[in-house]
């Protein structure tokens, strides 16, 4: 009896102690939550080479990827945007601003210039890039599997497939002996792309005319020049500046009745002839996922650079008809998307 009593007392005492512990734990969580919530909301510095309107689809893909890692803007992550609005020379200054604001991570989407600008500003800040070029060749990372340093990201292979665009144009216009290539001399990948294109031209047996464009207002001249030669075509090198101006290029292509191929599907969708390049939706989404994983505590050096698995060919049959070209059945069969 006596023993049972003492045991009941111990239990009661223990129960009391447990209650107290629970209460204390509760208070601790509550206080840390209430005091730490606001300042600890992670901040992503989003360094964008263009304006919000041109980047809307990419940003959506990025946020989708971020969501896959469990982050929703405004709820558990803040995004600090910097828009270069097409002036790539401003990228460094904007990147420096983000570094100064002490963001947790810089996301540098939309091409090699953005990644290079971010990397130039800080070597310690974690950077997640999205680009079309080869990050190893551009010396952004040491290797694909071991990026090294505090930078990693996704490459969409768009730069690698520039010669493929030349080939497709040759396929479409077998009679062409000369094709015009548009390159951006300010692009860090321009030289390597031109090199590959020249090599491909040799294989395909065409001559190349290289036109340099680095400003929007120079586009019209290019189309005007090419429009005079009906048996020619315009091949755009992979470059974000071109990619983000797809609707303008599509408009000019229609206006001057020029056969043209670019890297992004935006071009045929806007009425251009065709495009061949990496799936930017995939690359931006994966960049978002990587940003999320870094926020969750993974080291960027442990995240290998990802290459996009999907390279897509999009053709616009209406534009082809307008231009007087006919896609072969093999061509149409090989297209990932056909716009009619």
């Amino acid at each position: 009896m006596r023993c049972a009593n003492s045991r009941a007392v111990t239990l009661r005492r223990r129960a009391k102690r447990r209650d107290v512990l629970l209460l204390m734990a509760g208070i601790a969580t509550w206080t840390t939550k209430s005091f730490a919530q606001k300042p600890s909301l992670p901040v992503i510095g989003y360094l964008c080479p263009e304006s919000p309107e041109l980047f809307a689809t990419r940003l959506q893909a990025f946020q989708q990827g971020l969501g896959e890692a469990g982050f929703v803007e405004g709820r558990n992550v803040k995004i600090d945007y910097r828009w270069a609005r097409g002036e790539y020379s401003r990228l460094r200054a904007l990147a420096a601003e983000l570094v100064a604001r002490n963001v947790d991570i810089i996301v540098a989407p939309g091409g090699a210039p953005v990644a290079l600008a971010a990397k130039a500003v800080s070597s310690t800040k974690t950077i997640v890039f999205e680009m079309g070029g080869d990050p190893v060749q551009l010396q952004v990372v040491d290797s694909l599997s071991r990026p090294g340093g505090s930078i990693t990201g996704v490459s969409s292979l768009s730069v690698d497939v520039s010669p493929k665009r030349l080939e497709l144009m040759c396929d479409l216009v077998p009679t062409a002996t000369k094709l015009t290539v548009v390159a951006n001399p300010t692009s860090p990948t321009a030289q390597s792309q031109l090199q590959k294109l020249h090599a491909a031209a040799g294989t395909l047996g065409v001559r190349l005319d290289i036109l340099d464009v680095s400003k929007e207002d120079e586009f019209e001249t290019v189309f005007d020049t090419v429009a005079k030669d009906r048996a020619s075509g315009l091949v755009f090198t992979s470059d974000p500046y071109f990619a983000f101006r797809s609707s303008q290029l599509a408009y000019l292509a229609k206006k001057y009745r020029v056969s043209a191929i670019t890297q992004t599907r935006d071009f045929p969708v806007a009425g251009g002839l065709m495009s061949y390049g990496g799936d930017f939706m995939q690359s931006h989404r994966r960049a978002g996922l990587y940003a999320g994983r870094v926020l969750l505590g993974e080291k960027p050096s442990d995240l290998p650079v990802q290459l996009v698995t999907k390279v897509e060919l999009v053709i616009n049959l209406k534009a082809a008809k307008l231009l007087g070209h006919a896609f072969s059945s093999a061509f149409v069969a090989g297209a990932d998307e056909v716009i009619e």
């Binding site: 698995t309 999907k310 059945s329 093999a330 069969a333 090989g334 297209a335 990932d336």
Partner: peptide, 14 residues
């Protein structure tokens, strides 16, 4: 066969 090959490439993304 070339057409078939192109179609296959489209069909099998891997």
């Amino acid at each position: 066969r070339r057409t078939d090959a192109l179609r296959l490439l489209r069909q099998a993304p891997a």
